[in-house]
Design a protein around this nucleic acid. Structure first.
Lengths: 352, 352
DNA sequence: TATGTAAATGACAGCGTTGTCATTAAACTA
DNA sequence: TAGTTTAATGACAACGCTGTCATTTACATA
């Protein structure tokens, strides 16, 4: 805070605090302050404390611009996504932001069309143009083998959020959402309620999560010696409409299921809606479960039983993995999350 | 592109192109290149062309880090928001990003709690900390008079996206969404269909859009000499649940409305759901309209008639306004958008 | 205590731009 | 044409950090 006299007016000017001010206050060189900022080894802990105290007292924030100009890093990570589910994106974004802020990284956001022919060039160009230090990738981008290959070839740091275990093995860092196990739990829960005739409405075949959830469903039935009824297996995609159509198809069967497992909440909401239209009470006549715990699952009557996808936690873990990688801090390669069963109002027991 | 000999291997190194390379190639000083980059006046157009050609040929991108370090600008704008509607945020974000990219600005995103006691300090601190050049504000933050005042006092550049006309006059730049006119059109449309008993389920009283939409509704009724039935006016908030409850209340009336205007799509979806539960067919028995054209309005059966809020266009216009301000380019102060009626399946004519 | 070694710390150049001010070229003027 | 004004252009020092390498300090050893 310094005072300037301009003509006859006094202007209080809030000087920008730089590394030099901190150095002076702490009684060390700017280089030592720099070391503390970057958490480098070889600073005596007493010195470190002094510097930290000075930084706190002056409320100092290093200038990202100066840092990235002086170093080879940009202190920016990118979040490249193609996902129609805005709630998912916002949750991811919040989680990433959360870690970035703590670690003094900036986030660059880039929506894209994963199906575009030159998506790989687009991503590579973006990295170079903005000099990104790393990338957070979500499905379906995170499942694009060609893209992963090109990134590895160029030694670009990245984390992937994925749901298919098959993709975990290729040594690239990832956060793995065990959709299969979660789908298993959900199905087991229905079975425990006494259901045997459990239908499954499948999600988008392009998303790896679809076959994973389906596999979990199948495993649970198999393990309980329940025969899988082909008529109860409905192709679909991750949409409300798909749920409506799937349920209609199921309701037209002469032997109806007593429970419906929608691959995600939108499908389940659609199925619920279709049942209601048909005058079928949920859950007394048919139990319905969703997946993902999206806001959608709370905006139905009754509210959907579903599997809670901890998206924000996933984002936080993924970003931490990425930044560790960037900073060459030894770190896990894979972190696994297990979505948990969330029992609400759309399911009840069945005594056939 | 230069070639290095390391041991017996030849490594092709992709040199970073800097302003100096461009200057050499164009045969001018770096300062002149800088002038061209920043579109400054006082460069002969022949010179400008030469420089531009050199930049194109070398595929040169100025380093944001160096620019912001050397200048007083940061080339970053902030998007600070508190809005539970993820789709709205994503649309806004995409629009802002769109303009930012073209203008070589970065976007910093900051979710917050607008109701927090120290929200103003939080925003001011953020601006200082990240040295932001400007701010895009959406409701309810854009409607916080105290915040606006503090920003103006500190000479911070910003644009507001707002829906209440009352707030336009205070000389701050804004994009104004004429919700009132749109609500008028929606109501007029119902009236034209023959409806007279039109109920209104109100939105969140904290959002300025609520009274605006209500006012449009009232104006239309008044202008058509239709008496407003107090029982048809339901307090609520912008949620599905609120729509369900509102509709239930309306259906319990001995004289039911023939049409329901939900202040937003979630409310309308809730109302639609409640009607369905009651065995009432939409639209033959009751017409329902929403507002906002959120994905929600397409995930109901029948699909909702609504007013289309061109969120992304609003974001684009707002960001352009902001950047013009930052660059001191003379610009509009207010841009008005009119949401347009979007007729879908949830409304039909009534012949009472 | 003297000596060698490793651990801390510091001095200083540079990162790629923009701002300031000086210089040069062009365009008037009489 | 020479002199004067104005428009273009350039030289060079910042901007706030990090990397490199030199120097100092602390610690261990004999």
């Amino acid at each position: 805070m310094s005072v300037w006299l301009i003509h006859n007016k006094i202007r209080i000017i809030n000087m920008k605090i730089t590394i030099s001010e901190v150095a002076v206050k702490a009684g060390v060189s700017i280089k030592t302050v720099s070391r503390v900022i970057n958490n480098e080894i070889g600073v005596r802990s007493a010195t470190k404390d002094k510097v930290q105290a000075a930084m706190d007292e002056l409320n100092y924030r290093p200038s990202q611009a100066a840092r990235s100009l002086a170093s080879t890093q940009s202190f920016q990570v990118g979040f490249i996504y193609d996902n129609p589910n805005a709630y998912y994106i916002i949750d991811m974004q919040n989680g990433i932001l959360n870690v970035c802020r703590k670690q003094n990284y900036e986030l660059l956001i880039h929506p894209c069309d994963a199906k575009s022919a030159n998506i790989i060039d687009e991503v590579l160009f973006l990295i170079k143009r903005s000099n990104l230090d790393g990338l957070v990738l979500t499905p379906p981008l995170s499942e694009n083998q060609q893209l992963i290959f090109e990134l590895q070839k160029r030694n670009v740091k990245f984390v992937r959020v994925i749901s298919g275990k098959g993709m975990v093995e290729d040594a690239a860092h990832c956060v793995y959402l065990n959709d299969r196990a979660a789908a298993f739990s959900v199905t087991q829960y229905l079975i425990d309620l006494g259901h045997k005739d459990i239908a499954f409405i499948c999600g988008d075949p392009e998303h790896k999560s679809s076959p994973e959830r389906f596999e979990g469903y199948q495993q649970a039935l198999r393990q309980n010696n329940i025969k899988i009824e082909p008529n109860f297996l409905i192709d679909g995609e991750y949409s409300f409409e798909s749920g409506v159509n799937g349920a209609k198809q199921l309701l037209s069967l002469k032997k109806r299921p007593t429970a419906i497992f929608g691959s995600n909440d939108e499908i389940a909401a659609g199925a619920l809606f279709a049942c209601r239209l048909d005058g079928i009470d949920i859950p007394t006549e048919i139990s319905i479960v969703g997946f993902e715990n999206s806001p959608f699952s709370r905006q139905t009557l009754p509210k959907l039983t579903t599997a809670d996808q901890p998206t924000e936690s996933v984002a936080i873990a993924a970003t931490q993995l990425l930044i560790n990688q960037i900073k060459n801090i030894p770190t896990n390669t894979v972190i696994e999350f297990n979505p948990e069963l969330l029992v609400r109002e759309s399911t009840t027991n069945f005594n056939g």
